[in-house]
């Protein structure tokens, strides 16, 4: 594919300063504007980015750097996924820029509204897990299984340890079920929106209680942090990861156009008090 395409990084409010840094592989950035929004892009001459994992990682980071810069400079940003490109139309003969402008105009009001809603917010990720060895350490079942280990030959111990591990995980998982509602409620009280996600990283020997992307007023991140400190103090076997702040990647919530099979939408309806 040799025709000229536009690689899209982000959508920002029209009139925001264009990012000064470089894009993927040092490419030069510019904006395509269509009131009330504009798109941050570079002119691309090849197909999608493909290659070894190491290259993909680097490209994704360069992509995210551009979004970061937009996020720091513009009042608000809608991050666009990696490897999204706009192509010239073969049927109408419209250039890539015209195609993109057309899409921005069609979805302009929706995009603008979401930009306003996300202004001044950050995404933080909270992962709370329980140490499966520590959490149930005083449960009778665990004490019993531990006692059984003593004085047994190595082979038997190997099996008994496996069983102990199973017991620990089951008890910890039941504990996680009990703790989740409280943690969820306390985090939600500090957030504008919350979205559970499946953890990609599980530290060895832990059971996940809650993994959530949190949309937070950028001024109030420390309040969320304080709540987590509180949780840590109450529950010494909790292992907490607190990541961010990032642009609101998980809360873009826009599926422009029709009939795509992209990320599932939250089952939400009206907000009210």
């Amino acid at each position: 594919m040799s025709s000229e395409t536009l690689y899209v990084y982000a959508i920002i409010p029209a009139g925001s300063p264009a990012p000064t840094g470089a894009g993927i592989n040092g490419s030069q950035l510019h904006t395509v504007e269509a009131e009330p929004v504009s798109a941050v892009v570079h002119t691309h001459h090849a197909g999608p980015y493909e290659g070894p994992d190491e290259d993909v990682k680097r490209w994704v980071l360069e992509h995210s750097d551009v979004i970061e810069e937009c996020w720091n400079q513009a009042s608000s940003v809608l991050p666009v996924s990696f490897n999204v490109m706009v192509q010239a139309s073969e049927t109408s003969g419209a250039t890539a820029a015209e195609q993109l402008r057309g899409w921005l105009q069609d979805s302009g009001q929706e995009l603008k509204q979401r930009l306003q809603e996300l202004a001044g917010t950050s995404e933080l990720r909270v992962e709370i897990a329980l140490d499966a060895a520590q959490f149930p350490q005083n449960e009778p079942e665990v004490l019993e299984a531990t006692r059984e280990l003593a004085g047994k030959p190595a082979g038997v111990r190997r099996l008994l340890e496996k069983r102990l591990e199973k017991v620990q995980r089951r008890l910890t998982d039941a504990g996680a079920d009990r703790l989740y509602p409280d943690y969820r409620m306390r985090l939600a009280a500090q957030c504008q929106q919350i979205q559970d996600y499946a953890t990609t990283q599980r530290p060895e020997g832990t059971v996940s209680v809650l993994s959530a992307a949190c949309l937070v007023d950028s001024e109030r991140i420390s309040e969320l942090g304080a709540e987590l400190t509180q949780i840590q103090q109450e529950q010494p076997s909790a292992r907490i990861r607190f990541l961010g702040p990032w642009p609101p990647y998980s809360f873009v919530d826009i599926d422009a156009g029709a009939g795509s099979a992209s990320t599932p939408q939250e089952g939400k309806s009206s907000a009210e008090t």
Binding site: V8, F82, V84, V86, Q99, V252, I254, G259, T263
Partner: peptide, 14 residues
């Protein structure tokens, strides 16, 4: 995550 453009003007989504 992020905005998924669709329509026929997309080459590829991730």
């Amino acid at each position: 995550k992020g905005v998924h453009l669709n329509l026929d003007l997309i080459i590829s989504v991730a």
